[in-house]
C-alpha cells in the first residue's frame, strides 16, 4: 500500500479526469445514445480504481468506505423512491414523460437528432443507478485491496 512509481502516477493523473468526464457523459446521455447508468458507473468506478492503485496513501484518506456506502444506500433509496412516485398508476410508472415538466418533452416517432430534455424519469434513474454502481464497485475494490494479500 505504498503507491506506485512516478511514471504510473503521472500517467494515471492524465487518465483519471477524462475517464470521469466520459463516465458522466455516458450517464447523462443514457436515454439518447448507447450507454446508461450501469456502463457509466463502471467507467467511473474504473477511474477510481486507477486512482486507488496509483495513489494508495492519499486515496485511503479521500475515498472512505463509510462515505461510499452511505452514498450507495442513498442512491438505492432514491431509485426506489422514484419508482414509488409513479404509484398513482403503477409501480415504475414513467410519470414525468410527456408531462411538460423537467425531462417532459414529447418525442416525435422515427429517427431524430436527439433531445436532451426528454424521457421522463429515465435520466434520473440513470443518475441514481450510476451513482449506486460506481460506489458499489469502488467499495469492492477498496475492501479487497485493504484485506487481500498474504497474511498467513
Amino acid at each position: 500500500m505504498n503507491g506506485s512509481s512516478v511514471i504510473v502516477k503521472v500517467v494515471s493523473l492524465a487518465i483519471i479526469l477524462p475517464a470521469l468526464t466520459f463516465g458522466l457523459y455516458i450517464i447523462a446521455h443514457g436515454h439518447l445514445t448507447p450507454g446508461g447508468g450501469f456502463q457509466g458507473g463502471a467507467i467511473i468506478a474504473s477511474a477510481l480504481a486507477i486512482f486507488l492503485v496509483a495513489f494508495a496513501k492519499q486515496a485511503s484518506k479521500t475515498l472512505r468506505k463509510n462515505l461510499l456506502s452511505a452514498l450507495e444506500c442513498l442512491a438505492l433509496l432514491g431509485f426506489i423512491g422514484l419508482s414509488f412516485l409513479g404509484l398513482g398508476k403503477s409501480f415504475f410508472f414513467n410519470f414525468l414523460a410527456n408531462s411538460g415538466l423537467i425531462f417532459g418533452q414529447a418525442v416525435p416517432f422515427g429517427p431524430n437528432p436527439g433531445f436532451i430534455n426528454t424521457a421522463g424519469v429515465i435520466p434520473l434513474m440513470n443518475f441514481f443507478v450510476g451513482l449506486e454502481v460506481s460506489c458499489a464497485l469502488t467499495i469492492i475494490v477498496l475492501t479487497m485491496l485493504k484485506a487481500g494479500g498474504d497474511k498467513k
Partner: peptide
C-alpha cells in the same frame, strides 16, 4: 418513443 419518450429503446425497457 410515444410512451416512455426515450430514443434509446433498451433504456426504456430497463428503466420503464
Amino acid at each position: 418513443q410515444r410512451e416512455a419518450a426515450s430514443n434509446n429503446v433498451v433504456a426504456s425497457i430497463v428503466f420503464d
